[in-house]
Design a protein around this nucleic acid. Sequence first.
DNA 1: ATGGCAGAAGCATTCTGA
Length: 281
Amino acid sequence: MLIATWNVNSIRTRLTQIIDWINQVNPDILCLQETKVMDDSFPVEPFEKLGYSVEVYGQKSYNGVAIISKIKAENVKKGFFGCTGSKQNIEIFLDQKRLISADFNGVKIINVYVPNGSALGSDKFEYKINWLSCLASFLDELDKKGELICLMGDFNVAPSNLDIHDPKKYEGGIMASEIERSALKNVLKGRLIDSFRIFEKTPGHWSWWDYRNNAYELNKGWRIDHIYISKELTSKLKNCVIDSSPRENLRPSDHAPVMIDLNLSEINEDFIEDEDNFFEI
DNA sequence: ATGGCAGAAGCATTCTGA
């Protein structure tokens, strides 16, 4: 099962590119960020024509997330819920549409667009750190219930210096500061694993290139789009790749899609085996 | 230190992103 994430920087501007990519890659689940559109204006039909269901959580001009899937999404939730351990009041985050979650074959897919944070010490930076703190509390609650998690999206954090083309220049700055990295670590708490780093330990793999300064042509990128999976799922993980090819399109998104191949049928087989055992008893 | 580039809103220019 192919599960992908892509910050498309406007669903309406990128629509034909996304449809082309779906036709090429045939993902089972595609999580989008920065859709930048109200829910009633989201172009649902082109996806439904290809046999996909669409779940949206958007707003005018900014942010916005969506889940496109071949399997019907179950238990769709928009925004944070159950963050009882958070110091932050969830209501603070209601106006920015940055998180949507749904269950597929017993796995909870959580699609996030983490705030950029602008600059260290700014109000937006404080918002980013508070948002990540709320996300950590959100995951703590799901962890208590023993949920299998796939947390994916645009995190706006390079987890290590391997994930920046010029660490000397950018280390300590926005998306590369110790404050952001430790806030991200507090979300993951060792229970969620970076799918990409299971397969690839070297630098030079980017998911975002600035529109400015010819960054893509010079391959000056960052790896800030991630797919984190529960430890229990790592044995089902076949692959994780960044597909930089859409970044070469005319008028591309500044982000490339990232995807994993997760063998969820094995999970169902395990489940069926357990049921058989139950009936034998 | 600043701007570069792109999208949305809306019609000139500002806000936001990363």
